[in-house]
């Protein structure tokens, strides 16, 4: 497969980043609220029952965690982005611990689309790239299934065209 070099050279210099769809953030926040909310209620009820109403104030602790986690998840979600360049895939993620991965298409051994039961319920799927190196951790979570499949097909196609092996 031939790629127009002149047009792609410009693209290579300034990658076109794509963020994640909001579905993932919605799912994570919902899970956070459901689990920590449950914990708040159970903790409050138990403390009220066995230790007295004053102690039940400690149930506010998970509530604070919800607020903190809400912000944290938002920041983490915003930090995730990927860019398909002419010859390689870029994945950038993480706020405090920032990671940036570049995988040349020719090195891809297999592309995997996974979707767990919760993810499926929210209409999400993740794409994972494997190279011959196990240390390569190139995963894009929370994509819309159509986009995940498009990405998988495109990556597979480009990988075949530029296959390089070990």
């Amino acid at each position: 497969m031939e790629t127009g070099t002149a047009a792609h050279d410009d693209a290579a210099r300034e990658p076109v980043w794509t963020g994640l769809p909001p579905g993932l953030l919605k799912m994570r926040r919902l899970l956070l609220v459901v689990w920590l909310g449950l914990l708040t209620v159970v903790l409050g009820a138990l403390l009220n029952l066995f230790a007295g109403p004053a102690w039940a104030a400690f149930a506010l602790l998970p509530l604070a965690l919800i607020v903190w986690g809400w912000v944290l998840l938002g920041r983490n979600w915003r930090s995730w982005r990927y860019a398909e360049r002419a010859d390689d895939l870029l994945i950038s993620r993480g706020v405090l611990w920032h990671h940036e991965t570049i995988v040349p298409y020719g090195r891809m051994q297999l592309v995997e689309v996974t979707s767990g039961p919760v993810e499926r319920h929210f209409g999400l799927a993740s794409v994972q790239l494997h190279t011959a190196a196990a240390a390569t951790d190139a995963t894009i979570p929370g994509l819309v299934p159509a986009e995940a499949e498009r990405l998988r097909d495109r990556l597979t196609e480009l990988g075949e065209a530029r296959s390089a092996g070990l």
């Binding site: 611990w97 920032h98 570049i102 090195r107 240390a135």
Partner: peptide, 29 residues
């Protein structure tokens, strides 16, 4: 080289430092 990764923790960010990992096919980095 199979893939290239850049990694930066908060303390490294503070000192404007980062590390670059280069992964090879023999499961070495």
């Amino acid at each position: 080289v199979q893939s290239v990764r850049l990694k930066q923790g908060p303390w490294e960010r503070f000192w404007r430092l980062a590390e670059v990992h280069v992964d090879t096919g023999a499961n070495g980095t």
